[in-house]
């Protein structure tokens, strides 16, 4: 008994010690926050701002911040104009669609600001990005045996005319069901003075049943243009051959071998027979009000006899 008391006291002390140690590391009030902003212009000309918010946990480690209120502003005539409000998801990310015509400054640039303001759980934070709008056009001459993909990058100058973008790094990908796959190990091209870059498409890319693929060109994480992409369909992939008889001699074949069908049927029948017999016995017992005992007497009489 004495030992038990001692053990109990020690355990209580240990639990108190560990819980109080954890409490001291917890931050009271709002959590320190970091915010990252990226601009995306997709092939269909939609423009989005993608925001990633991280907040420090009780171990002072940045983790994705869920349900942070994000306000997105654009600068219009040197004043901030609110364009959208969004909550971050479980991964700390929020995607906000931007207006098609963003207000431009004298240098044909636009500025986006992502802010966390007066959020009850997170400290105020903001990130600003100034970008120029770029256009990418991608073309493939399918008659060309070299399988050359040409991409042209342009931006608008002050007169509203298209001007080539030189020395831009463009990466090439192939569209797949859940994302994009690098088109080759060395998938990068750099644009020349005309804003043009070329890439030779490998011959071993698998397409659909007709050999169609979608080639995607991307400017990625560029300090001036953000993320821009463009797509083109091409019949330059290897046509996918669908195997019409992938599982020969299988049970689910139209003409499965008879011994297989008989064996499987017998096994399943045995299993089901056991279930049915058990079920039948249980029902029979539940319906019988005076179940037989080994001595032939009802169970309650046997109980009295024991005493």
């Amino acid at each position: 008994m004495k030992n038990f008391k001692l053990l109990f006291t020690m355990l209580c002390l240990m639990l108190w010690g560990t819980s109080s140690a954890e409490e001291t590391t917890k931050e009271v009030g709002k959590r320190e926050t970091s915010i990252q902003l990226s601009f995306y212009k997709k092939a269909d000309q939609t423009k989005t701002a993608r925001v990633k918010v991280n907040a420090k946990n009780d171990k002072r480690k940045f983790m994705p911040a869920r349900n942070a209120h994000i306000n997105i502003y654009v600068i219009n005539n040197k004043t901030e104009q609110l364009v959208a409000t969004e909550l971050t998801g479980i991964d700390g990310k929020a995607v906000v669609e931007l207006p098609k015509n963003l207000p431009l400054d004298a240098d044909m640039k636009f500025t986006i600001i992502a802010k966390i303001e007066n959020d009850p759980a997170f400290e105020d934070a903001q990130e600003q990005g100034t970008y120029k709008e770029a256009n990418l056009s991608i073309s493939i001459n399918t008659a060309d045996t070299d399988r050359l993909v040409t991409v042209k990058a342009t931006e608008l100058d002050k007169d509203g005319k298209e001007k080539p973008i030189a020395k831009a790094t463009i990466n090439f990908y192939i569209q797949r069901l859940f994302g994009t796959m690098p088109a080759a190990e060395d998938r990068t091209a750099t644009t020349d003075d005309k804003g043009e870059g070329t890439f030779i498409l490998p011959r071993d890319i698998k397409g659909d049943t007709l050999g169609n693929i979608i080639v995607v060109a991307k400017i990625e994480d560029n300090d001036i243009y953000g993320n821009v992409d463009s797509k083109v369909d091409a019949k330059l992939g290897i046509a996918l051959l669908v195997d019409k008889n992938p599982f020969p001699r299988a049970l689910w074949e139209p003409r499965a071998p008879a011994p297989l069908v008989i064996t499987i049927s017998v096994i399943f029948s045995c299993v089901w027979l056991v279930y049915i017999s058990l079920f039948y016995t249980i029902i029979k017992i539940s319906r019988d009000k005076n179940p037989p005992t080994p001595t032939g007497k009802p169970p309650y009489e046997l109980a009295y006899e024991d005493h």
Binding site: L6, L11, T18, A21, K59
Partner: peptide, 16 residues
């Protein structure tokens, strides 16, 4: 034994 167990638990809860 209690001291050893306490030490082990303490190590498990040790912060970074």
């Amino acid at each position: 034994i209690c001291i050893i167990v306490a030490g082990l638990i303490g190590m498990a809860f040790q912060t970074d």
